[in-house]
Nucleic acid binder design. Sequence first.
DNA 1: ATGGCCTGCAACGCAGGA
Length: 257
Amino acid sequence: MKISTWNVNSLRVRIEHVCDWLQQNQPDVLALQELKITNDLFPHERIAACGYRAVANGQKTYNGVAILSREEPVDLVNELPDFEDQQRRVLAATIGDYRVINLYVPNGQTVGSDKYDYKLNWLDALHDFLRKQISMFSNLVVLGDFNIALDDRDVHDPEGWIGNVLVSDKERDALKKILDLGMVDTFRQFEQADNIFSWWDYRAGAFRRNRGLRIDLVLASESLAGKCLSCDVDIEPRTLERPSDHAPVSAIFGPNP
DNA sequence: ATGGCCTGCAACGCAGGA
């Protein structure tokens, strides 16, 4: 079972990249973030032509998430319970034996801003939601754009980023608290080269210089993490013309969850 | 050089991203 995540930064602009990537990589599930389109504009025909179903939780201009899969997604949840929010950042679905929760965690803009407070409150509500989901589903995958670099290995220039949004202690503590529920960062289960990132700023040749962050994660519940065979970032789409600023990340589970 | 670029929307600049 190959489960992938990709922040595409506009599905309208990136539909060709997504279709090409699906055909080349053949994941069982692909979680997308930052669609920036409403559900009525979702390109179901294009996705179906690649051999995938899709469920979307879209929004005009901002945010928006979707799950593409071979098998039918059921038991959908499209918001954090007991958290009033107009922003479309959550989509959970059961696909075969797996519970998949696709997240677009708020960016937070700057430490101390209203958007930063919203991010921390959102992460609190996520914690409560995941605590309940973990008790309900043993094969749980929580993946997406977390907008938090968990530790300094995930930051190209840890000194320069100290105190910045995406690396601040409060954000890291909130993510650690979620891991402490019994979730594993599958990427770190494996030996990895240094300086592997999943996002690079469009500016200043950041990708060419590999000045990035690893903020796109595939978390797995502890029992499922033991069956994870690999977790890797695919930087190839970031080299294309007019790329997303994020690269896809894929984890493989198997053979018997 | 604490800015650089990209997207969407609506307008002929802005908000937002990370």
